[in-house]
Design a protein around this nucleic acid. Structure first.
Lengths: 229, 229
DNA sequence: TTTTTCAGTTAGACCCGTCTAAATCCTCTC
DNA sequence: GAGAGGATTTAGACGGGTCTAACTGAAAAA
């Protein structure tokens, strides 16, 4: 049996591997989990003993296939829970993260199955993040780019919002920016800010760190894919 | 902040106080929680330090009002979860207990409120047990008696089933015995068994320990109460 | 190549919840 | 009212997850 903490470490390593280049440094992991480096070291040892991570002393860690499976399982729980809380319990998009962060470690397999069934095996969560399948195969990230990387006049579809801060999310939601919405880049200001125009006609100004967190696609790509199916 | 374990101890003390006479002996508590007496002693010390129990060395413990509030909160979580799992997620009546036993310690107040709202503030859980109100006032147990205490020919309404064993519950559910069902005592056998007849005409034989766990009321009492309202 | 710097690890401590073994208190019986 | 017997507590240990302080490796700078 794995503790909730162990699961948190595996999940963090998984994310860091996707976003940076493996192996993951002890201090990076420690920062992510808000613990001190020695704490991370000792946890890494434990995970290595259980065969969940590959460790090279002074270099860092990578997940083994077993470790990755555990990480995907936890992420599946998390994203199913977020979807469930939003769709079935009336949670606001912005407030599901913390609740799911706790519950993901405590639900049974039966619960997971029933929630997935109740939601009709959803493929993405309310933030637009893909939900790992029941078989826990590695996730294919939907190809997307940051809103910040597009020029003025471009029409874009919001695919994912990779922000977890409740206040920021509430603001974005209130402004009408959430996965599935289309918008046009109105102005890229040289002061670290992007302004977008929604179909409603309203414009919303977004500082760079937000524009980086908003993942977008070109609407016609979607049309093509749908056509393919 | 209280740990899940502390909550378990408080809940156990609460139940034992209701069923036996306070104060609760260390060994009784230890048995209930399946730990050794020294373990219970040290936990009792911690709870006493926090003002959640009143302790008299070598005598036992009782809950303080604060401790009782915590216990009621946990019980409210548990019973709301059982109801939710049954009604919204399609769990079988017999399998909700274990899941709720874990989750009760991990849901937020927001989750509690939303579940209660989704269920329309239910007053009893699937086992017929009363759900503490949001204000966490002490619960008034519905007056009921054990099926085992009634004579042949008596018509009874099943109010609560105080059994948590999944196999036994599955059997009872399959046999048609669950809260809300009416039945007639068919035979009280001198070998520690009671046979009841359901409205479907079927008879079901129940050994004493089961007949003790089934809490019943007289159907006309219910009618009167409804009349009063 | 040697030194310096800094990340990473080891050492040792603490709190939690648990245990076993040993001491101690309470109470019931004679 | 003195033991005997049983329940309770104390003592000391351990694993989990964390910390600080001290040490050690590795890699960049000189």
């Amino acid at each position: 049996m794995l503790s909730a903490k162990m699961e948190d470490y595996l999940k963090a390593i998984y994310r860091l591997e996707r976003e940076g280049d493996p192996p993951i440094a002890t201090s990076t992991l420690a920062d992510t989990l808000e613990v001190t480096p020695p704490t991370a070291t000792s946890m890494i040892e434990k995970l290595a003993d259980r065969g969940l991570v590959e460790r090279e002393k002074y270099k860092g860690v990578t997940l083994t296939p077993e470790g990755e499976t555990v990480a995907l399982e936890v992420i599946r729980h998390h994203r199913l829970l977020e979807t469930f809380l939003t769709e079935e319990l009336g949670y606001d998009w912005s407030e599901v993260h913390e609740e799911a962060e706790v519950l993901e470690h405590h639900i049974s397999e039966a619960f997971e199955r029933r929630v997935a069934a109740a939601l009709n095996d959803p493929e993405v969560d309310p933030h637009g993040d893909p939900i790992p399948s029941d078989s826990l195969d590695s996730i294919d990230d939907v190809p997307a780019s940051a809103l910040a990387d597009h020029g003025e006049g471009t029409r874009l579809l919001v695919a994912r919002v990779r922000d977890r801060d409740p206040e920021e999310l509430t603001y974005l939601d209130g402004a009408g920016i959430r996965p599935g919405v289309e918008l046009v880049v109105d102005e890229v200001a040289p002061i670290g800010m992007v302004t977008v125009r929604l179909d409603s006609g309203e414009t919303v100004a977004l500082p760079d760190h937000i524009a980086d967190a908003i993942q977008v696609r070109h609407p016609d790509e979607i049309a093509e894919e749908v056509g393919e199916v």
